[in-house]
Each structure stands twice: as C-alpha cells, then as structure tokens.
Nucleic acid binder design. Structure first.
Length: 875
RNA sequence: GGGUCUGUAGCUCAGUUGGUUAGAGCGCUACAUUGACAUUGUAGAGGUCUCCAGUUCGAAUCUGGACAGACCCACCA
C-alpha cells in the first residue's frame, strides 16, 4: 500500500525541515508569552515559569557545553509552555570583559599591534566590532539548536538598559559604604596588566628550587629570593622552644643581600613550626599572608617588584632586571657572602597563574575598588552582611541546588570569601561611574556637572554586571510588569564550574538590591567531554562542533545525545556513536509516522479500546505519560527521555504496531502516536513538529503550543494485564525457537491452557495467537486444560503453553533443560519459603511486599508442578 | 593540607525511602530480511554489584575501614 501522502519519504532528512520549522515557530510569535496569552493558549493568571539564559560570552562560537545547556533549558521551557504555564525564556549575551579584550588583543598581536597603539577609543571600537560578529554567530547557532527563546526580550550585559542597572547598583552600594576604594593586596597579572579576582586564578604545580638562606642567627627557606630585599621582619611561633631567647619586638642587625639591615622579631601563631626551621621573613607587598600579618602588627610595607615584573631601586644593582633573570644572580651573590646553606632542587609547590593570560600572578598592594562582604548593616531588624545573606538564602532552603551536594561546596566557598576586588585595568567593560576633580570624588549614574572632572579609567569585573542578570534583564531598576511577573526566576540552569563566579554573585546582588532570591532552583549541569572522558580542547583536536553535528545528524539527534545519560552535577561523554544511535531513533520515529500515515484518517476520532492489545497500549501510555511528567517535574530529564524511548521503541513499535498489522484499530494507533509526538516534542522539537505538520498542516497552531497530554485512559487494567502475560508467553515461545534452532519457516503448534479460576483466555487474546501465526510463526491449535503429550512447556504468570515439537526436538535434551529449570525453581522456592517463615520478616516488612512475595511463591509452586507433570509426560 | 564525588556486564551507565531470580543501550554471537524503518527485527551469551568488617530477618543500597580513580578549595615560607 502506498502512503496516502506520497511525499512521505522513507528517511527523515533533518536539514530539509529544521530551518523551515524554526521560521514557522518564530513567525507564530509563541516564543513570546504575551503572544500565547493573546492567542488564548496561556491564561493571564497562569503560574509563571521563567529561565534567563546564561549569557554566552561574545568571544567566538558556541561549543558542546552551550549546546547541552540549550537542550536542557529548551526541554524544560517547552514542557512548561505546553503544560499551560506563563513561560518565559529570556536570551542574551555577555560582554565578558577580560576574555573578550584579551581575544582581541591576541588578534591585534597577530597584526603586530598593541591596544596602546590604537588608543582607548579606537581599541574599543575594534572590540565592539568583534563582539558584534561573535554575537551574530552565537544567535545563529542558538537558533539552530531549536531554542524557543523570546528574542523580543534579548539583552546584552553592556547595552543601554544593563548599563543603567550597573550604574544604579554601583551607586547604591557606594552610597551604602558597601563599595569602597582602598589600598589592599590584589592579584596582579603582569602580562594582562590588570588585577584579577581570586576565582580567576589557576594553581599549577611546579617543581622549583627551595633556597635555604642564613638570616642572622636564623635559617629561612624561600623559593623567591628576588622578593627578599626588603625583608626586615622575621617571624616565629611564640611557643617554639628553639627561639625562646628572642622576644616579640626585639631587633638585631643581620647581614643581607645588599649589606646589613635591622631585623625585627615578630611572634605569631600562624607559623608552622614543622616547616623548615620554623622561621620565616615576610614580604607584605607581594604576599597575601604576609600582608595580613603586616596589617595585624602595623608593619612597614615596601614594594620590591613593579607592575611589569621588574625589580625596583631597592634591589640595588639588580634594579630594572626581570624576576626570572635576577633570581640566579641574587643567589650567586648570597652564596658569595656565604649566606646560602642549602638548595633543595625538588621543591614542589603550587604557583598562582592568571586564567586568561597564563602569567604568574604577582600579588601587589594597589588602590582598587572592593565590595565589602563582611560589613554589617541592618535588614528586617537584624544585623546582616553580604556573606550572611548569601548563606541564608541556601541554608533556609529558599534556593535549592541540584544536586544538593553542592551546598557544602557553596558554604565552604563563602566561609573563605574575602572582599571582592571589582576594578579592572582594562578598557572593555563598564567604566567605573566615579569622577574625580582634585580631591573631590563624585559617584553617579551620569557624569557630574561642571568642568575639570575625569572619570576613573578602570572598568568593572565582568561578574558585577552578570550578577544583576536575573533582574537587569527584566527591566530593573524600573518596576516593570516583566519584573513583577517573572522575578524571582524559576530555574537557573548552568555549569557547576561557574557556581562561584556567577551563581553566588547573583545571589549576593539579588539579596542586596531586592531582598529576594534570584531563582528558586539551580540546576547545575556537568561538562561535556569526549568519548574518553577528556575535556574538549583545540590542542587535543577532540572538539565536537554543534553546527557540524546538526549538519550531519540533525539538531534532534544532538539534543538527545546531550540529554540522555546526563544528570545534574555529572560530566557527560559525547561520541559520534552516541549521536548516530539517536539519529537512528529519530528516523525510527519518523517511520512510525510513515506507518501510521498508511491508515491515518485526519479528523478527531475518539480512540476506543477493542482488543486486549488496545487496552494494554492505552494503559501503558497513561502510565508512561504520568511517569514522564513526574520525571520532568523533578528535573529528571534523562530518566524522562529514557522512559519515553523504551516505551516508544520496545512497546509501541515492536509490539503494538506489529499487532496492528493483524488486528487493526486505527483510532487507537493514531491516538497513541499523536500523544507520543506531544510527549517527545520538548526533547526533539523538529522531527515531532515535522510529523505533526505532515499529518495536519497548521502553521497557526503548531505542535509546540498544543496541550501537554493528561495521564488518563479509557482502557481497563485487567485486559492490559492479560495482554502483558500474552506478550511474555510469546517471548518464551520465541526463545524456545532460538534454543532448538527451529527454522523460521516452520510453524510451531501451541496449546495454551489456563486454569478455570485463573486468568482465562478470552476470545480476543485467543485470536491474537491465531493472528500472530503469521508474525511469529506460532500456531495455536487449541486451548485446553490438559497437558498434551510429547511437548515443550513454557509459561508466563499463570498462562502455560505446550509446544508440540516431537519431530524437531530431542527429548533427552528437553528433559535436561526441564531438570535444570526444576532445580532453579526449587532453590527459588526455598529462598521464598525461608523468607516467609521468618517471624521478623512477617512482622516488619510492608504488607504489599509480603503479599507480593506470597504471590511469587504461589506462581513458583504452580510452575514447579507443571514442570513435574511435564517431566512425567516426557518419560 | 581541607573538602566533595565515583567504583554494578567488554564499554557507557540506570538502580527513588534496604525487600522481584540485579537492569538498559552499545559491542559480541546466532538467526531472519521484497514488509513503515537494512538508520531493521528475534533470540542468546556475558555480573562474587572493588575488597574487608559491621548493623539487619534481609545489603548493590545503611555504617566503619582498606584500595583505586575523578574533581573542587587552599600562596607551608
């Protein structure tokens, strides 16, 4: 039979459909919740469901990790939209200050230029041009994934509205004294020529030389002799008995690199007595711990190394030399003076490097802008700090992290949190809204009136603007409808690698400015790795480009492979084999549609269960609908799609469609298939919409906005149960065919029996066997209560089938098979009986479990007696 | 140094509060193939649930320990 629709090809070609369908959806306007309300699809007072897209950096293109983020979020959004929620998914991009600037600087370096050659204005133009190109690429890729984002609300962290939000936020914090400017020790990146935050540091293990130096009567150890010129404090533990003769504050003259200096004894408990000799000298200008110590005792601090990594005049003859060059010379000089006692060549330590430039971070004391995370202020009659606000949001379960174990990591991070340095010495970003004129300082949203003002040249850490993202995108500081409807947002879905960078900072900002949480649930996805579990990187050449995959396999296949097997907090391995297998599944679904189209009659036919197979499939459909809905409600996206896939392939395609070829009920077939299209739509929007449009072309009412299926059914459970047994029995019979290698052409004659008070074979499922004769070469010759002679027994529940195979079967072999089965069964019965005779079990186990065990025992006894009976009949 | 997680079939992993004779996909083996689909179907083989001890009537599941691995945080100079 030809398909009614002769244009229904036997293979689904994703590229023929995807762009067309995305345009169809976009034109419909239904990505925008306002349009859904206008069209009556969503009720005005419906519960809102909102997600703001974690804005990709405008540094280039999207990778597999972005693709997985888009897939997960789109699934949640499409599911909720179909379920009737007022659903908003808001897109945007991030200017990503340092990352973007350094990318452009690299491009410039290729042309032999630096940012200084261009000047601030021309350089910024260049960056913005690059950012615009990246933006366009990213939007194109995002659409290719099928993302149902509301483009009418698109935002950019550096656009006009977000700039207003940033300046408003800065001014408020400045006025409240939360933001302050101060001389403090910061992480200086000598290559990027900017400060960076603690989180932008990557520690790398390095084997270096550890020098043991004579410092007066003491011996100190250092890996960095070049910082030691100004060391005039020597620190030891107050309870260290070796140094009892020295008191805190004592001074003594020691011979040092450039001649004698006066050293002061400091006693402090932070010293580890076990390390080296238990004595160290400090360099407050270039070490965080030393700085803390110097502040504690009000010690002098002196700069030794300049911002480009060269030694200052304090180094005497070494002044002007870069660190790397100076180190060995300094040691040589010290050795000449007899001050080097030992050199440990294999000292392993962690050195701090800048994430972006790769340079070794040099701590420096500099004048920078900070957010004070420990400043106390009143809130609702209590005294709070930014730290405590961040802790409480999660501790009081206003925000749920998924998986929950990240709570601990989160609290741990906050405990160790220091003031956040928010100023950066780069050009691309939000320039700090502070102006100076002589001693005057002005902070405002606009530049101050009058002449002679100059704006602070620094820009803000990019995470300052991203921290405002959940509400700056919704119109804040204005009180817009969007803000009132969609904030706090429902879910934040992002990678666990930016929990601190971003998630924590959004909580900080939202709690401070709105006294509210930014989102209720945080779904933290893992990293996408290659098939061997390695990170994807250019140098390994193992990058899977989402666009390539979409071109070769289609967006739906990519989405499935990114979602199935992916659980919150765990990394995902992606391989082409995996993508291929889901492409196959997409095609399988397409062909199910092709089969359904053979008998599909447009027009709404109410499905009515006739055959037991109908009762079965409708009951299962209802069960699966309920399961999938529950899984999605609990963010178990992988489980939801696996449940659906198993049902679609193993039950609907392999059984129901096969049976439909014999026992037709077109209305039920079409109903189940159409319901499956809806259930699958969030996971694979393209192929489901393509099928939907093929069956019932309706561009105004796409599948995308049809109502999510309900889990009720007209079928009866008993009939469904009965059919399950029949399926099981057929599987047993097929196994026999395989065991005895009975050729497929040969029909098997089967006698089916069931006891009078047990499940009986109705006219209907008796018919199934007869019809199945063609399908699985099973031929039911009778239904009887008696055991036929010389036959093989198979059973499913209380159904039994006797297969008459006298001409093909070696009955000695069959006896052996039965004896083995008997042994297994007896062992099983013993286990069950022991269990059921156990008083503790009877008293403590749940009644359902006991009942289930009893049924199992009953069945096992029945099977055993059947086997016995059959064994005697064989001999 | 502190912390988190993982260890189940050859591979990738499910396994909800302890209770079916421990599951799936891929791979492997055998068979089938004009059929909606060779991007398919049917069946099979394959597991001491890393190891040891404990709690319990009962442990893949809970507790302690060992071993192996992954990751995060932290400038012991």
């Amino acid at each position: 039979m030809e398909p009614k629709n002769t244009t229904f090809p036997s293979t689904y070609t994703a590229s023929d459909w995807e762009d067309r369908l995305y345009t169809l959806w976009e034109k419909s306007g239904f990505f925008n919740p306002d349009e859904c309300i206008k069209a009556g699809i969503t009720k005005v007072d419906a519960e809102p469901f909102s997600i703001v897209l974690p804005p990709p950096n405008v540094t280039g293109t999207l990778h597999a990790g972005h693709a997985s983020m888009l897939a997960i979020e789109d699934i949640l959004i499409r599911f909720k939209r179909m379920s009737g929620y007022r659903t908003l998914w808001l897109p945007g991009t991030d200017h990503a200050a340092i990352a973007t600037q350094s990318k452009v600087e690299k491009l410039l370096a290729g042309e032999g230029k630096t940012r200084a050659d261009l000047g601030r204005e021309a350089f910024l133009k260049r960056v913005e041009q690059f950012a615009q190109e990246s933006h366009d690429t990213i939007i194109h890729q995002t659409k290719k994934m099928g993302s149902s984002l509301d483009w009418s609300r698109e935002a950019y962290t550096l656009d006009e509205k977000r700039t207003l939000a940033v300046r408003t936020a800065f001014k408020k914090m400045y006025d409240d004294g939360i933001i302050y400017r101060g001389n403090r020790i910061v992480n200086w990146d000598p290559v990027g020529q900017t400060t960076i935050s603690d989180d932008e540091i990557v520690y790398q293990e390095e084997t270096a030389k550890l020098y043991y130096l004579k410092y007066g009567p003491f011996e100190i150890a250092t890996a960095r002799p070049e910082t030691k010129f100004g060391d005039k404090y020597v620190v030891m533990h107050p309870e260290d008995e070796r140094y009892q003769q020295y008191a805190h504050g004592d001074t003594l003259t020691v011979e040092w690199i450039n001649g004698p200096i006066e050293a002061t004894i400091i006693k402090d408990e932070m010293i580890d007595r076990e390390f080296g000799t238990g004595v160290m000298t400090i360099t407050p200008w270039h070490s965080h711990v030393d700085f803390d110590l110097a502040q504690k005792y009000h010690l002098d601090m002196e700069q030794i190394i300049d911002q480009s990594g060269h030694l200052l005049p304090i180094a005497g003859e070494f002044a002007g030399k870069p660190i790397s060059e100076a180190r060995e010379h300094i040691i040589a000089k010290l050795a000449g003076k007899g001050l080097v006692t030992k050199i440990d060549e294999s000292y392993v330590h962690q050195i701090a490097t800048a994430e972006r430039s790769g340079a070794t971070v040099e701590p420096q004391i500099m004048r920078q802008w900070f957010i004070n995370v420990t400043k106390e202020f009143p809130r609702d009659g209590k005294t709070v700090t930014l730290k405590s606000l961040m802790q409480d949001a999660v501790r009081q379960e206003k925000i749920h992290l998924l998986p929950e174990r990240f709570n601990k990591t989160y609290f741990n991070w906050i405990d160790n949190l220091r003031d956040w340095c928010i100023s950066r010495q780069i050009w691309f970003g939000h320039q700090i809204p502070v102006w100076y004129r002589g001693e005057e300082v002005f902070c405002g949203i606009e530049a101050p009136e009058g002449t002679g003002w100059t704006q602070d040249p620094d820009t803000l850490d990019t995470w300052f603007s991203s921290g405002l993202w959940t509400f700056s995108t919704l119109g804040w500081p204005k009180t817009t409808d969007d803000f009132q409807t969609y904030h706090p947002t429902t879910v934040l879905e992002t990678g666990y690698d930016i929990l601190f960078f971003w998630v924590a900072r959004m909580i900080l900002m939202s709690e401070y400015f709105l006294a509210d949480i930014p989102f209720k649930t945080v779904y933290l996805h893992g990293l996408v790795r290659d098939e061997q579990g390695r990170k994807m990187s250019k140098s390994l050449g193992n990058i899977i480009d989402p666009l390539d995959v979409i071109a070769d396999y289609g967006a739906d296949a990519l989405r499935l492979s990114l979602v199935i097997g992916s659980t919150p907090g765990n990394d995902l391995k992606l391989s082409t084999e995996k993508i291929t297998s889901y492409r196959n599944f997409v095609n399988k679904l397409w062909n199910m549609g092709r089969y359904v189209s053979l008998s599909f009659d447009a027009g709404n036919v109410t499905p009515k269960a006739k055959n037991v197979s109908d009762h079965w499939i409708l009951t299962r459909l209802a069960e699966v609908t309920a399961e999938v809905t529950a899984h999605l409600d609990h963010y178990n996206i992988s489980l939801a799609s696996e449940t659906l896939r198993d049902f679609t392939w193993n039950e609907f395609a392999d059984w129901y469609i096969e049976i439909h070829k014999i026992e037709k009920n077109d209305a039920v077939l079409a109903h189940v298939f159409m319901t499956l299209l809806k259930l699958w739509h969030p996971f694979m929007p393209f192929v489901t919409e393509a099928l939907f449009q093929t069956f019932a072309p309706n561009e105004k009412n796409p599948l995308m906005i049809t109502a999510w299926p309900k889990a009720d059914t007209l079928a009866t459970k008993d009939d469904a149960e009965q059919f399950k047994l029949v399926i099981k029995l057929i599987q047993e019979i097929r196994a026999i065919r395989s065991i005895y290698q009975i050729e497929p052409a040969k029909k098997i004659a089967v006698t089916v029996t069931a006891g009078a008070n047990e499940i009986t074979l109705t006219q209907n499922n008796g018919a199934i066997f007869q019809h199945l004769a063609r399908l699985s070469e099973i031929h039911v010759i009778a239904t009887a209560a008696d055991t036929p002679q010389n036959s093989i027994i198979v059973q499913a529940g209380l159904l039994r089938a006797y297969i008459e195979l006298a001409d093909v079967v070696d009955f000695e072999k069959e006896k052996k098979r039965l004896l083995k089965e008997k042994q297994d069964k007896e062992r099983y019965i013993t286990t069950l009986e022991t269990k059921l005779q156990n008083k503790n079990f009877i008293e403590r186990a749940k009644p359902e479990i006991i009942a289930a065990e009893k049924t199992k025992l009953e069945e096992a006894h029945k099977h055993l007696s059947d086997i016995d009976h059959h064994l005697t009949s064989l001999s």
